[in-house]
Protein backbone atom coordinates (compact mmCIF):
# COMPACT_ATOMS: atom_id res chain seq x y z
CA UNK A 1 0.00 0.00 0.00
CA UNK A 2 2.71 2.45 1.00
CA UNK A 3 4.54 1.70 -2.23
CA UNK A 4 1.42 2.37 -4.26
CA UNK A 5 0.83 5.71 -2.56
CA UNK A 6 4.47 6.69 -2.98
CA UNK A 7 4.50 5.76 -6.67
CA UNK A 8 1.29 7.72 -7.34
CA UNK A 9 2.74 10.71 -5.46
CA UNK A 10 5.93 10.65 -7.51
CA UNK A 11 3.97 10.56 -10.77
CA UNK A 12 1.69 13.40 -9.67
CA UNK A 13 4.71 15.51 -8.65
CA UNK A 14 6.43 14.79 -11.98
CA UNK A 15 3.31 15.83 -13.88
CA UNK A 16 3.27 19.14 -12.01
CA UNK A 17 6.95 19.77 -12.78
CA UNK A 18 6.18 19.18 -16.46
CA UNK A 19 3.28 21.65 -16.32
CA UNK A 20 5.57 24.17 -14.65
CA UNK A 21 8.28 23.75 -17.29
CA UNK A 22 5.70 24.07 -20.04
CA UNK A 23 4.40 27.34 -18.60
CA UNK A 24 7.74 28.87 -19.68
CA UNK A 25 7.33 27.83 -23.28
CA UNK A 26 5.53 30.57 -25.18
CA UNK A 27 2.98 28.81 -27.34
CA UNK A 28 0.55 30.87 -29.34
CA UNK A 29 -1.43 29.39 -32.17
CA UNK A 30 -4.35 31.78 -32.07
CA UNK A 31 -6.58 28.82 -31.30
CA UNK A 32 -7.52 28.23 -27.69
CA UNK A 33 -6.82 24.80 -26.31
CA UNK A 34 -3.70 23.86 -28.25
CA UNK A 35 -0.93 22.88 -25.92
CA UNK A 36 2.05 20.57 -26.03
CA UNK A 37 0.92 18.95 -22.80
CA UNK A 38 4.28 17.79 -21.49
CA UNK A 39 2.59 16.55 -18.33
CA UNK A 40 0.70 14.04 -20.42
CA UNK A 41 3.96 12.13 -20.84
CA UNK A 42 3.67 11.36 -17.15
CA UNK A 43 -0.04 10.45 -17.41
CA UNK A 44 0.53 8.11 -20.38
CA UNK A 45 3.50 6.48 -18.65
CA UNK A 46 1.40 6.05 -15.50
CA UNK A 47 -1.30 4.35 -17.58
CA UNK A 48 1.08 1.43 -18.16
CA UNK A 49 2.94 1.60 -14.89
CA UNK A 50 0.29 2.14 -12.20
CA UNK A 51 -3.04 0.47 -11.35
CA UNK A 52 -6.19 2.19 -12.66
CA UNK A 53 -7.19 4.08 -9.46
CA UNK A 54 -3.73 5.62 -9.19
CA UNK A 55 -3.75 6.69 -12.84
CA UNK A 56 -7.04 8.51 -12.27
CA UNK A 57 -5.58 10.05 -9.12
CA UNK A 58 -2.51 11.32 -10.99
CA UNK A 59 -4.68 12.77 -13.77
CA UNK A 60 -7.03 14.44 -11.27
CA UNK A 61 -4.22 16.01 -9.25
CA UNK A 62 -2.36 17.14 -12.37
CA UNK A 63 -5.41 18.97 -13.72
CA UNK A 64 -6.52 20.43 -10.41
CA UNK A 65 -3.16 21.72 -9.16
CA UNK A 66 -1.70 22.84 -12.49
CA UNK A 67 -5.05 24.47 -13.30
CA UNK A 68 -4.96 26.42 -10.05
CA UNK A 69 -1.27 27.32 -10.34
CA UNK A 70 -0.88 28.10 -14.04
CA UNK A 71 -4.44 28.55 -15.33
CA UNK A 72 -7.72 29.90 -14.12
CA UNK A 73 -11.04 28.51 -12.99
CA UNK A 74 -12.49 28.42 -16.49
CA UNK A 75 -9.55 26.58 -18.01
CA UNK A 76 -10.00 24.06 -15.21
CA UNK A 77 -13.45 23.09 -16.50
CA UNK A 78 -12.16 22.55 -20.03
CA UNK A 79 -9.16 20.61 -18.78
CA UNK A 80 -11.32 18.28 -16.72
CA UNK A 81 -13.66 17.57 -19.62
CA UNK A 82 -10.71 16.85 -21.92
CA UNK A 83 -8.79 14.91 -19.30
CA UNK A 84 -11.64 12.60 -18.32
CA UNK A 85 -12.58 11.80 -21.93
CA UNK A 86 -8.99 11.18 -23.04
CA UNK A 87 -8.18 9.03 -20.00
CA UNK A 88 -11.32 6.91 -20.51
CA UNK A 89 -10.55 6.37 -24.20
CA UNK A 90 -6.90 5.58 -23.55
CA UNK A 91 -7.83 3.02 -20.89
CA UNK A 92 -10.31 1.30 -23.21
CA UNK A 93 -7.90 1.25 -26.17
CA UNK A 94 -5.15 -0.05 -23.94
CA UNK A 95 -7.44 -2.80 -22.65
CA UNK A 96 -8.10 -4.06 -26.18
CA UNK A 97 -4.38 -4.73 -26.60
CA UNK A 98 -4.56 -3.85 -30.28
CA UNK A 99 -2.46 -0.73 -30.11
CA UNK A 100 0.91 0.25 -28.72
CA UNK A 101 1.45 3.31 -26.57
CA UNK A 102 1.79 5.41 -29.75
CA UNK A 103 -1.75 4.77 -30.98
CA UNK A 104 -3.24 4.96 -27.50
CA UNK A 105 -1.58 8.32 -26.89
CA UNK A 106 -2.58 9.74 -30.28
CA UNK A 107 -6.23 8.85 -29.66
CA UNK A 108 -5.89 10.30 -26.15
CA UNK A 109 -4.59 13.59 -27.56
CA UNK A 110 -7.47 13.87 -30.01
CA UNK A 111 -10.05 13.03 -27.35
CA UNK A 112 -8.54 15.56 -24.96
CA UNK A 113 -9.23 18.33 -27.46
CA UNK A 114 -12.68 16.98 -28.37
CA UNK A 115 -13.61 17.00 -24.68
CA UNK A 116 -12.39 20.57 -24.32
CA UNK A 117 -14.38 21.77 -27.32
CA UNK A 118 -17.50 19.97 -26.07
CA UNK A 119 -17.15 21.68 -22.69
CA UNK A 120 -16.56 25.04 -24.38
CA UNK A 121 -19.68 24.59 -26.51
CA UNK A 122 -21.70 23.87 -23.38
CA UNK A 123 -20.28 26.77 -21.39
CA UNK A 124 -20.54 29.42 -24.09
CA UNK A 125 -23.69 28.02 -25.68
CA UNK A 126 -22.30 28.80 -29.13
CA UNK A 127 -22.15 25.73 -31.41
CA UNK A 128 -20.05 27.69 -33.95
CA UNK A 129 -17.04 26.88 -31.78
CA UNK A 130 -17.16 23.45 -33.44
CA UNK A 131 -15.31 25.11 -36.32
CA UNK A 132 -12.17 24.80 -34.21
CA UNK A 133 -12.60 21.03 -34.10
CA UNK A 134 -10.55 20.01 -37.19
CA UNK A 135 -7.58 22.17 -36.14
CA UNK A 136 -7.76 20.94 -32.59
CA UNK A 137 -8.04 17.31 -33.70
CA UNK A 138 -5.00 17.70 -35.95
CA UNK A 139 -3.05 19.28 -33.13
CA UNK A 140 -4.18 16.49 -30.81
CA UNK A 141 -2.87 13.83 -33.20
CA UNK A 142 0.52 15.57 -33.47
CA UNK A 143 1.01 16.18 -29.76
CA UNK A 144 -0.45 12.76 -28.92
CA UNK A 145 2.05 11.02 -31.21
CA UNK A 146 4.95 13.00 -29.73
CA UNK A 147 3.82 12.20 -26.19
CA UNK A 148 3.36 8.55 -27.18
CA UNK A 149 6.84 8.24 -28.67
CA UNK A 150 8.48 9.81 -25.62
CA UNK A 151 6.39 7.69 -23.23
CA UNK A 152 7.31 4.56 -25.17
CA UNK A 153 11.00 5.32 -24.71
CA UNK A 154 10.53 6.00 -21.00
CA UNK A 155 8.48 2.82 -20.49
CA UNK A 156 11.12 0.73 -22.24
CA UNK A 157 13.71 1.99 -19.78
CA UNK A 158 11.39 1.62 -16.80
CA UNK A 159 10.61 -1.96 -17.83
CA UNK A 160 14.25 -2.93 -17.46
CA UNK A 161 14.53 -1.51 -13.98
CA UNK A 162 11.17 -2.08 -12.32
CA UNK A 163 8.68 -4.86 -12.13
CA UNK A 164 5.30 -3.66 -13.38
CA UNK A 165 3.32 -5.90 -11.07
CA UNK A 166 4.84 -5.07 -7.73
CA UNK A 167 1.91 -3.14 -6.37
Amino acid sequence: MARRVAAAGIFAALALVCSYVESFIPFHFGVPGIKLGLANIVVVTALYFLPVPEVCFVMFLKILISGLLFGNLMSLIYSFAGGILSLAVMMILNKTGWFSVLGVSAAGGVCHNIGQIAAAMLVTGVPVIAYYLPVLMGAGILTGCLIGLVSGRILKILKDHFSFSNS
Partner: peptide, 8 residues
Amino acid sequence: LFKPRRSD
Protein backbone atom coordinates in the same frame (compact mmCIF):
# COMPACT_ATOMS: atom_id res chain seq x y z
CA LEU B 1 3.10 -2.53 -26.12
CA PHE B 2 5.83 0.08 -26.30
CA LYS B 3 6.85 -0.56 -29.87
CA PRO B 4 4.85 1.25 -32.54
CA ARG B 5 2.83 -1.19 -34.64
CA ARG B 6 0.99 -1.14 -37.90
CA SER B 7 -2.35 -0.92 -36.05
CA ASP B 8 -1.15 2.37 -34.53
